[in-house]
């Protein structure tokens, strides 16, 4: 299961790789990282059939997570099955906007990795 994590903080990569090291080692999950919405779009255009889940931060300079969400929904006929949005601000406006744009889930920072792991494992076919 390929997961694309989009966040402007580069240390997110190390964090995810360590948090999910067992799943990565066992080959259950594989992670790709993009550090901006634009980068995520480029990556998706190249690898879009592989990615099943997108985990995206909302507050990023440039293209925001919500914009990325709408672009993904617009551009790809077969969008990744799941889009999860992560934000530091758990405000209703962002939540409803994300849901309106077709997000599957909405998490607030700090991310509880145990909860995230459960959610991801449920998605594994």
């Amino acid at each position: 299961m390929k997961i694309l994590v989009v966040d402007d903080e580069t240390d997110v990569r190390d964090l995810f790789q360590q948090r999910f090291r067992r799943e990565i080692r066992s080959g259950e999950m594989s992670f790709s990282f993009a550090f901006s919405g634009e980068e995520a779009m480029t990556y998706l255009r190249a690898h879009h059939s592989e990615v099943l889940i997108i985990l995206s931060d909302i507050n990023m300079p440039g293209m925001s997570g919500l914009e990325l969400l709408s672009h993904v929904k617009e551009e790809f006929e077969m969008p990744p099955t799941t889009m999860m949005m992560i934000t530091a601000y758990g405000d209703d406006e962002s939540y409803s906007k994300a849901m309106e744009l077709g997000a599957n889930d909405f998490l607030t920072k700090p991310v509880d990795f145990a909860v995230l792991k459960d959610k991801l494992l449920q998605l594994i076919p």
Binding site: E9, R19, A88, K109, P110, V111
Partner: peptide, 10 residues
């Protein structure tokens, strides 16, 4: 918040 999250997570 961001660095604190990292501190906690790491």
């Amino acid at each position: 918040q961001n660095p604190l999250n990292f501190v906690n997570n790491f």
